[in-house]
Design a protein around this nucleic acid. Structure first.
Lengths: 330, 330
DNA sequence: CTGAAAGCGCTTACAG
DNA sequence: CTGAAAGCGCTTACAG
């Protein structure tokens, strides 16, 4: 049987209040008593139960991160930024995986209701503005990461600008027939990147055509997989006329696409999106997103919001940066 | 202010016991009452608080996964296996990140003491046998993943066999001077893979030499990074004589190594380890580990252990499988 | 089918 | 510096 505060109190010959004070590092406890209690607690393997503690204190000292883990590297970087803030403040972080197939909004709502944490970090969840407004009623600090919204604090990317930058680069190199290697079309970032692509075309007086959007057949993880990129590139290369450059919606897809290009032994310049750490080693020209900084800022905003619920809402939009490596230089 | 069970009880004109029963889907509540309570609760945005609920019921219905998130793809696959079991059983999963720089054992101990969950899944933590024994005293269900131990249920890989298989393949192709591209030498999987490498050499009467072990300079994430692989391969290629084949301790390192090979425009056959999903698209010959299955089995064992603490300890060791692609075929 | 009441393991004014 | 006691928001025999 696990030990309780009563067991420790009895063994140390003090009241439970004293034991509690020791564990909450109150400095009103005599040094000798403190030491004794700590020793006995250690011997008996005791530590206050998280649940009881949080119920009684009504403080949670914890924030929760909701993520669709699909985003691998992306997520790891964000996590580093988050942890760098939290460690100093001694705030606990719990990660909850959101299953994209099971109704994202309902899962979020369920979690908020249960009052696990002092605040929540919603990563890449892309809820609609309407859904976000509904979450307001829980009246709980909440920060969006990889998203922008007037409803909550948010730290996002300008995906439109990213798509625009990537496409413009290819246009300025003289390519006219640029394909868009898309992810799942309903995905918010994909839509925005496409929008930037269109804008760039328009500025160069190149008509946009639906037929220049290519998709893989596999659509798990919003189509952000190597396989899906491979399939789409196969389609691009079997098209007539073959486009003379490609803007690819993600690095992971680009890795798959690169293989198709290699397998068919052709050349096709490509710029993609994300700048994962493998991208540097596979020579991808790509749009970089400062993920660490995002994690850092979003977490910071959340903490500030917890401490001051009435502060004006703030949103950060990080500018995308184009990084040129070999994939775009034929 | 968040609503409590009292608010709902009052609004619905029932006792708090009835409200509680509704949320615990007891079937002793009259259908009409149930509906009314549910409607009112929904209107008021009420749901039982996790903390209070778990304290009162002494059931947690939740398991916790402890991971050093360093392992990207690896982890994602495992998570899928875990979730596929948990969803059906309606058990909650909490993910806790373990910081490898902050004393793994102490963090684990701390978490176990706080009694968050009914059981814990320790992923790739590689605690020593001695440390594991110390955890016994918490008397809590615990399953190891990517580890083997007689002390707890475990699902691991035979890293020695994997290293042996990879090296033997290269030996049988006729290569005699095979380098080992290592990760951090203190890492348990690295040690074991090295052991398999040595065993294979010995069987072919090839003397082992420390000078054939190459390391990168960057050692974050136990040296499992592209950068570290790149650095190490640069060393290999500047060595005289240049080895005629390489066994690389991880796919991520191999991606970096591949770039070095390409940059210097040489050829060097290589087999690596992990079979990440990018490996298929970058042509890595590698050792495959069935990660999904592992997640699945480890979770299953944990649930069984929770239901039957006295069952005999069981451990699964998954056999590694060699997958040949282009990187080893010059 | 429903309610009154004890209890889960803590924290924290309050009093000394 | 320490203790007695109320309370955090729930669940669950027990009784009806």
């Amino acid at each position: 049987m696990p030990k309780t505060i009563y067991d420790i109190a009895k063994a140390a010959n003090v009241s439970i209040a004293t034991v509690s004070r020791v564990f909450n590092s109150s400095n009103t406890v005599k040094e000798a008593t403190k030491k004794r209690v700590l020793r006995i607690a250690d011997e008996m393997g005791y530590h206050p139960q998280a649940y009881a503690q949080r119920l009684a204190s009504r403080r949670k000292n914890s924030i929760m991160m909701l993520v669709p883990v699909m985003s691998n590297h992306f997520f790891t970087e964000i996590l580093k930024g988050t942890q760098d803030i939290l460690v100093d403040l001694n705030i606990e972080l719990t990660i909850q995986n959101i299953n994209q197939e099971l109704g994202v909004f309902r899962q979020v709502e369920q979690i908020l209701k249960r009052q696990w944490a002092d605040g929540y970090l919603l990563v890449s969840l892309h809820l609609s503005e309407q859904e976000l407004k509904k979450l307001k009623r829980f009246n709980v600090p909440l920060s969006l990461l990889d998203d922008v919204s007037p409803t909550f604090d948010s730290v996002g990317f300008d995906n439109v600008a990213g798509g625009y930058k990537a496409t413009t680069y290819l246009l300025e190199k003289g390519y006219r027939d640029i394909a868009f290697l898309s992810g799942k079309v309903s995905s918010k970032p994909v839509k925005e990147r496409l929008q930037g692509y269109k804008k760039a075309l328009m500025e160069h007086q190149i008509p946009f055509s639906d037929e220049r959007i290519f998709l893989g057949d596999t659509m798990d993880r919003d189509g952000f997989t190597e396989k899906s990129g491979y399939q789409a590139m196969l389609k691009i290369l079997s098209n007539y006329p073959v486009p003379d450059a490609v803007f690819c919606s993600s690095d992971i897809k680009a890795i798959g696409a690169l293989k198709a290009i290699k397998d068919l032994n052709v050349k096709l310049p490509m710029v993609s999106y994300d700048n994962l750490s493998i991208s540097e080693y596979t020579g991808l020209s790509t749009i970089h997103q400062p993920m660490y900084e995002m994690g850092y800022h979003a977490t910071k905003h959340l903490i500030e919001r917890i401490n001051n619920p009435e502060a004006p809402i703030c949103d950060h939009v990080h500018d995308p940066e184009l990084i040129i490596r070999s994939s775009s230089e034929i």
